[in-house]
């Protein structure tokens, strides 16, 4: 299982702040997890679409699309940050 978190407009558009997800065997990277979520369709495909500015953190550290994802990880999807 991985813990997946959503923040800001993604949390609102997807209607959830997070979920526990068991990864299919072929989902081993950030990009594959994103594609897996997009395949749910609806708000998932529109909010996480590849053209959208979506940032991903794995275990609370910014991660690139090819970063590995494995059971026990915490993966967060969010828009570009706007603090300060």
């Amino acid at each position: 299982m991985v813990k997946v978190l959503y923040f800001a407009n993604l949390r609102e558009d997807l209607g959830t702040a997070g979920e526990e997800l068991s990864l299919p065997a072929d989902v081993t990277t950030v990009a594959a997890l994103r594609a897996h979520l997009i395949a749910r369709g609806g708000a998932w495909s529109s909010s996480l679409a590849l053209g959208k500015a979506v940032r991903v953190a794995v275990n609370q550290e910014m991660a690139r699309p090819d970063a590995p994802v494995k059971a026990g990880d915490e993966v967060a999807f969010f828009p570009p940050v706007t603090g300060g």
């Binding site: 800001a8 407009n9 953190a57 910014m62 828009p79 570009p80 706007t82 300060g84």
Partner: peptide, 22 residues
């Protein structure tokens, strides 16, 4: 901080609430 720390602002305006764009 402004480009890396995970904070997000949502503003209330007369036209409704909106998330601030980076």
């Amino acid at each position: 901080l402004k480009t890396r720390a995970p904070f997000w602002k949502k503003e209330e305006t007369p036209q409704g609430a909106r998330w601030v764009d980076a």
